[in-house]
Amino acid sequence: MAEKPILYFLCTGNSCRSQMAEGFGHELLNDRWEVKSAGIEAHGMNPKAVEMMNEVGIDISNQESSVIDQDILNKSSLVITLCGDAKENCPVLPKGIESDHWGLEDPAKATGSEEEVNEVFREVRDEIKKRVENLSK
């Protein structure tokens, strides 16, 4: 059986947006893609990202925050950056690797009441879900 192509989600700290994207990828694309995520740096898993994904029935608590692995990057078929920092600072992609950029707000920087912060997380989460669903078409 042939190996599945690798889909690599990249972000600044691999704590929030890329983790949610990886979670949706495992849930929605696992039959066709090997889904991974990483960051320019590893900031650890954002507990609010875990909480917001649990709201939609996806457990990302066992995923790990990690830095970009050059070997995985070189083997990837599709690399998606989820923030400008990752797009600008991502290592140069080898020829033949498709890439896309989803410039999404960093929910970890949201301010206000807990409900206002949760709403920003939900908006970003739902946008990521919609975009990951579009990858499955």
Rank of each mutant, 00 (worst) to 15 (best):
D100G: 10
S66G: 13
I72E: 12
G112N: 06
L104N: 06
S66M: 06
K129P: 05
I97F: 04
D69Y: 02
L104C: 05
E127Y: 00
C16A: 15
K137H: 10
V35L: 02
V50C: 12
E123L: 06
D69N: 15
M1W: 01
K48N: 12
C16E: 08
N62Y: 02
K129D: 05
G13P: 07
E3F: 00
I6H: 06
G13Q: 04
E27F: 03
G84Y: 02
E64M: 08
E105S: 07
A2T: 13
K130I: 02
E34M: 09
A108K: 12
T81I: 04
P107V: 03
G13K: 02
T81Y: 03
D126T: 07
I58L: 07
D100H: 05
N89Q: 13
K130S: 15
A42F: 02
P91L: 10
E41P: 06
Q63P: 02
A42Q: 08
R125G: 13
P94C: 07
N14T: 08
T81P: 11
E3G: 14
V79D: 04
Q19L: 09
E88Y: 03
G84A: 06
W33G: 03
E127G: 10
H26R: 12
D85M: 08
V92K: 15
D100F: 00
A21I: 03
G96V: 08
L10W: 01
D100C: 06
S65I: 02
N89G: 13
E41T: 14
L73D: 13
L7C: 05
S113N: 06
F9M: 09
C90V: 02
F121G: 11
D85K: 13
E64D: 11
N62H: 13
E116A: 15
K75Y: 00
E105Y: 01
V117I: 15
G96Y: 05
D85W: 00
S66N: 14
E119Y: 01
C11F: 01
E88V: 04
G57D: 11
V56M: 11
E3H: 10
D85I: 06
E55Q: 14
V124S: 10
M1K: 12
L78R: 10
G25M: 05
N62G: 15
L10E: 07
C11E: 07
V132G: 13
P94Q: 15
